[in-house]
């Protein structure tokens, strides 16, 4: 998997995570007693045992909503079977990363912060690659210049300049007949 595909995967999972989080927020707002209010002990600390059911329910909602969102990325008209379909991530669909919707839902339900960080990481890697390529191009141009060559194709290739004999011939040519059949250079 190249960095572009990794970046696309992080962006996809980040978007699905955000959508999933919004759905969870809507559910908490709609049913605050069951989903938003934490069970607390007499000392006003979170009662992890008593609150387990609520937490599991929220995780389940996040997972289902992430799967539901991911199912829209399956290449077909949406149907219930897309909930266990496959989405393809990558510019080359044949070689791209094929991920089951359930797996995508599992990854995305972990929260958007992880995927946001990974997206930032892949962007940084791509910037480093771009800078390295620019640096290599500059170095190539400098080496070519030292050898008396000029570069072209965005500095990725070099060409030899015209030698002096050709330049001399060009500048001293006598005017031709219009029906000249072969260039004299």
């Amino acid at each position: 998997m190249n960095i572009d595909d990794l970046s696309e995967m992080a962006a996809t999972l980040f978007a699905i995570s955000l959508a999933s989080e919004r759905i969870v927020t809507i559910a908490k707002t709609a049913f605050p007693v069951w989903l938003a209010n934490e069970k607390k002990t007499g000392a006003q600390e979170v009662d992890l045992v008593a609150d387990k059911g609520r937490r599991l329910l929220i995780l389940a909602i996040a997972f289902v909503s992430a799967c539901f969102t991911a199912s829209f990325l399956v290449d077909s008209d949406w149907g219930l079977d897309d909930l266990y379909g496959t989405i393809v991530i990558g510019s080359d669909r044949a070689k791209g990363l094929h991920l089951n919707v359930l797996l995508v839902g599992l990854l995305a339900s972990g929260g958007s912060s992880l995927w946001s960080n990974l997206l930032g990481y892949t962007k940084a890697v791509k910037e480093v690659q771009t800078q390295r390529k620019a640096s290599e191009g500059l170095s190539y141009r400098q080496k070519a210049s030292k050898e008396g060559l000029t570069t072209f194709d965005s500095g990725n290739a070099a060409r030899r300049p015209l030698d002096r004999t050709v330049m001399d011939r060009m500048s001293t040519l006598a005017p031709p007949q219009f029906d000249l059949e072969l260039s004299r250079i």
């Binding site: 000029t150 330049m167 060009m170 219009f178």
Partner: peptide, 26 residues
């Protein structure tokens, strides 16, 4: 990657020579 060079000549409409328009290089 090759280089080019040459001359551009100008002729009148009756194909008689007029002037040397200029040189070109890569």
């Amino acid at each position: 990657p090759q280089s080019i060079g040459g001359v551009v000549w100008r002729f009148n409409a009756d194909k008689t020579f007029d002037v040397k328009a200029g040189l070109f290089t890569t």
